[in-house]
Design a protein around this nucleic acid. Sequence first.
RNA 1: GGGAUCUUAGCUCAGUUGGUUUAGAGCGCUGCUUUGACAGAGCAGAGGUCAUGGGUUCGAAUCCCUUAGGUCCCA
Length: 877
Amino acid sequence: MSFATKYNPEETESKWYAYWMEHKFFSSKVDHTKEPYTIVIPPPNVTGVLHMGHMLNNTIQDVLIRKARMEGKNACWVPGTDHASIATEAKVVSMLKERGIDKKSLTREEFLKYAWEWKEKYGGIILEQLKKLGASCDWDRTKFTMDPDLSEAVISVFVDLHKKGKIYRGIRMVNWDPQGKTALSDDEVITKEIQSKLYYIQYNIEGTENEFLTIATTRPETIMADVAICINPNDPRFAHLKGKKAIIPLINRAIPIIEDEYVDMEFGTGCLKVTPAHDINDYELGLKHKLEVIDILNDDGTLNEKAQILIGEDRFIARKRISKMLAEIGQMEKVEEYKSNVGHSERTNAIVEPKLSLQWFLSMEDITKPALQSVMDDIIQLHPPKFKNMYRSWMENVRDWCISRQLWWGHQIPAYYLPNGEYVVAQSKSEALEIANEKYGIAYKSEDLVQDEDVLDTWFSSWLWPISVFDAKVFSEGKKNEDLKYYYPTNDLVTAPEILFFWVARMIIAGYEYMGEKPFKNVYLTGIVRDKQGRKMSKSLGNSPDPLELIKIYGADGVRTGMLFSSPAGNDLPYDDKLVEQGRNFANKIWNAFRLVKGWEIDPELDGQENQAAIHWFENRFNESLTEIEDHFNKFRISDALMTSYKLVWDDFCSWYLEMIKPAYQQPIDAATYERTILFFEDILKILHPFMPFITEEIWQQIKERNTEDALIVSEWPSPKSFDVQTIAEAQQVFEVVSQIRNIRASKGISPKEAFELTIKTQQPDLYLRFEMVLKKLANLSKLEFGDQVANSLGFIVKSDECFIPMIGQVDVESEKENIQKELEYTRGFLNTVMKKLMNERFVSGAPAQVLEIERKKQADAEAKIKALEESLVNLG
RNA sequence: GGGAUCUUAGCUCAGUUGGUUUAGAGCGCUGCUUUGACAGAGCAGAGGUCAUGGGUUCGAAUCCCUUAGGUCCCA
């Protein structure tokens, strides 16, 4: 049997993924004999394609789910997508544009037909891509937030919350996206500092010849919407203006000069123009002073007829033109450069316009309380916990949630308007009709009712996700099905911190509101994948590698491990191809270890006694590592768990264990050692499987004949056994001797082929005798002896044992002395710090016994070492 | 402006209640090694006054304060 020296992942991956699917290893059904372990996927945007963030996120979920499955739990990972109102509608609109169709020319029904067509065609791409990564989702459970049952759930929840009085309709200043033509929640607005200008504009005072006041504004195009000028009543500069009126330039409308301490006397000129329709603070001021509201902007950001001038111009063009017009009539005093923070739409990047509009809101004050409490009390744990603070500050200062969006793609708000000006909220139009007719005693017909045009915020459906994927009917029927009873609450949620508020907090809110129970126990927050310059990876920057291309080049296992190598929870991941390269190299290393072992002939005549020490050591070392790995997993230190596994395999198993037991070239191995080695290898494959599912399954299946039920994916996760630290420490000492001898060869330029004779001066010769064969093999020794200093030899010290290697040629005494002198100095310095502690009365009386013992051991070791070094110096002359 | 958080080797990070550490890992780097699982490799090595200045303590990378810089959240 011969294998390629390089592992080729491509065919292995498709083969085993198909095998796992075929045998339904990913599927989960209610089974009360098993403990459920559940993850719901953060539903990717249905318009999305796989990006590096998904890779990281889903790799982590797959690691968790695969490990749980091997631990014998009933592992259920529910996949799906969300309908992403704004993003999808934008995609559909641009698709229509390409076909020469204007959205405005379509009815809602026609538009939705195109939208579904688009969704059917492109909506599944991202889930298919996840399969390439190895994601072991229960695909039969795939859900979409606009599936009929999930939609019904959303409507039920709206109706229910409305009934509870938590949903209301109100005029509010909202963040308006003039490009997407929809309201945005505060969280969908990204504030960016941009370079803008501060315009100083003069307003004449009514009834005077040439008296004027000056206001400073960044938005001169809104002066036509001014309804007042506000001054601070304590400002002596403007006392004479009290009770007068100012005249808006260009349109010559007179507006009152009002007083309010809200005005900052230091900022600008101290005179504030009040424009309630176009500024949130002015709006509040307007309410307080009962001012009129003049809205001069259309939904698309152009000026309307109320502006009187520049009607139909875009707001930014209008700004430039008005600035020029003001200058022409001499009422532009000056223009200054100014840095200001401006809100941008997360989806369209358009500058957000504060706009008054009638929207639907969810009152957040009461509903958030249990959700805050459960995180504060660690009933739900955030990993890393630093996010608790952020979560708290958000939940304590939460504002009502604007849940309506001026779009067609999504869940249409189930509010029906009646000819009498009232409205009814109901599950369906027919229900609404019944309610309306009963309530108002009028026989309305179906066509009299007009449903609200708007849809609900996408998060208003995904906040139900951990519930609705199992049981969408629970909201209307109030009785849980078996799935929901069994799988809810889920265990772990893996997502990005940027949607902690958007989504995670709201799921917790919905969980308590509808289940009276948390939706998950742990929230693992990943970092953001960035490029080498620290920029977020994005399509527009073009700085992201194509994930599928990466999988092709480095293999899914390589990419998975590469992504995890440097990604502690909550930390950003600066992506570098080196990482996935390292992952690929690791897969190759495992492959070659397998080639080695698989190539051995077995000789039943051999007793393999000399391998006992190696086997005994590795068994202990394995359990030590496994214990550490479990600890890392328990603390959600996934990359540490990987690194510990990596070192166990590469350093301990490959570099030490296999080298120790490896028979000479073309020599056979004894049966006992071989069998034990296969068992070790199998345990290693198990530990690696969650990280590298494909290569491990491949080797697992090649190492032995397996039945279907013996596939690695469903094999039993090894449980850590106790281990003997002494055994591990002793081996460490032997390894140190080997390294020192290799070091001598390297530094003296002596070939590894040249055998050495080693003499050790030690109290514990049996330790070295146990490893005699190992020492001879790994350090290439022809002889191992115990005794005193050997003449004309090179020496080194390990712990308190002295080792000597006789040299045939002349030893460079001076350089040897120099080396010893250096080590002596270091050791003396070290002893000094130890002694300082031990000489200290308060340390000796105060420190715990264990610490004292450690310090005394350090002292003894250091002293022995110093003595040995000094002797060596003397012997060298 | 308010708040949170971070600053440890060239890079990315560990260092868990102060004492197994005059500080560790992976990658990178330097040198040597190509017949025997693997050059996608082996072996060895170099590299840090733990951001700064102070304080608490018998003892500080770890606790407190100062300063500087970064990141994030909120306004």
